[in-house]
């Protein structure tokens, strides 16, 4: 195919748009990992809950004109769900003398993912859904983009910005960063590390839920819609470096671009392979990922 500069630019823009949304998803995963040193395998299901919540709220409460209220309400709902889930299922990892924390975390979050996915299938029925939001079409460069997708892109940037502010300019953010460096150390200065864990988990799943809410009118709502985003999220945190938030942001953008351009210049059917090839190249050059740091073992 003859790829003109204009067409190339269009593919690049399409890659950046989807990359920002990948980044939002990955930041939730890596944030929880950086604080609690556990992988939440149910992140995709929190994305799914976010998308269903947005569909429900827009369809039955706020209407199309006030869709953004649906996003805000989804954030509140996901935050509360995150607090409860963490207290019920994750907290015992740290509040008891559990020896095999990693195994417990893996089993409990995979079981949670299965439960939530099947529950959604039973409750929502077989039909795919989408909140009735139509923000028209806009032109970016030469690329016509739906207003829904652009709103999701802008929403992702705003949320990433707010998250950055929270981490770097608030007391809570300092506590999170301290906790990610030394869990025992922050307790010596009077910080309740279990409470920090709980809030971090809730924020992490809220980020995933917000991605689901923003993308609900773009990629539709169905019980399995979080599965792919989870897989991408894990790819991204390895590319960016485990536990690195800037790495997640950059990794998401790069993955979106690599997939978009790879599917044009090589083969569209191998889209998901390009991300893994990119991941392998990054690890060969920098085994800790783009922003990952070597761990010091005593």
């Amino acid at each position: 195919m003859n790829v003109t500069p204009e067409l190339f630019l269009n593919f690049l823009i399409a890659g950046i748009m989807i990359g920002a949304l990948y980044a939002l998803m990955a930041m939730g995963i890596t944030f929880i990992y950086s604080i609690m040193k556990m992988i939440n395998w149910a992140m995709g299901e929190f994305y799914m809950i976010g998308s269903y919540a947005q569909w429900f709220l827009v369809s039955f409460f706020f209407g199309s004109a006030f869709w953004f209220l649906g996003v805000l309400a989804t954030a509140v709902i996901l935050f509360l769900v995150g607090l409860v889930v963490q207290w019920l299922l994750i907290r015992p990892m740290f509040s008891t003398g559990m020896e095999r924390k990693d195994e417990y975390g893996t089993v409990v979050t995979i079981a949670l993912a299965l439960f939530l996915r099947n529950l959604a299938t039973v409750l929502s029925g077989p039909n795919t859904r989408s909140p009735d939001i139509d923000l028209g079409r806009i032109m970016i460069g030469g690329l016509p983009v739906s207003g829904n997708r652009f709103a999701a892109f802008l929403g992702a940037l705003i949320i990433i910005g707010l998250f950055y502010y929270l981490l770097n300019y608030t007391w809570l953010g300092r506590a999170f960063r301290a906790g990610s460096q030394n869990r025992v150390g922050i307790q010596t200065v009077g910080i309740n590390v279990l409470r920090i864990d709980q809030i971090a988990f809730a924020i992490g799943v809220t980020l995933a839920g917000l991605a689901g809410a923003l993308l609900a009118p773009v990629f539709n709502v169905f019980p399995e819609n979080g599965a792919v985003t989870t897989m991408k999220g894990f790819e991204i945190i390895i590319i960016g470096g485990m536990g690195s938030l800037p790495g997640a942001a950059l990794g998401g953008l790069l993955l979106g671009i690599v997939e978009s351009l790879g599917s044009v210049f090589i083969d569209t059917g191998l889209r998901n392979v390009y991300g893994f090839i990119f991941l392998i190249i990054v690890l060969l050059i920098k085994p800790t990922g783009l922003f990952g740091e070597k761990e010091r073992l005593s």
Partner: peptide, 21 residues
């Protein structure tokens, strides 16, 4: 013909390709 991965969530690149043709 454009064949995409079944797990793909965004088909804009594939459709742009078709459109350019």
């Amino acid at each position: 013909s454009t064949i995409y991965d079944k797990a793909a969530v965004d088909l804009t690149p594939e459709l742009l390709q078709l459109q350019a043709w």
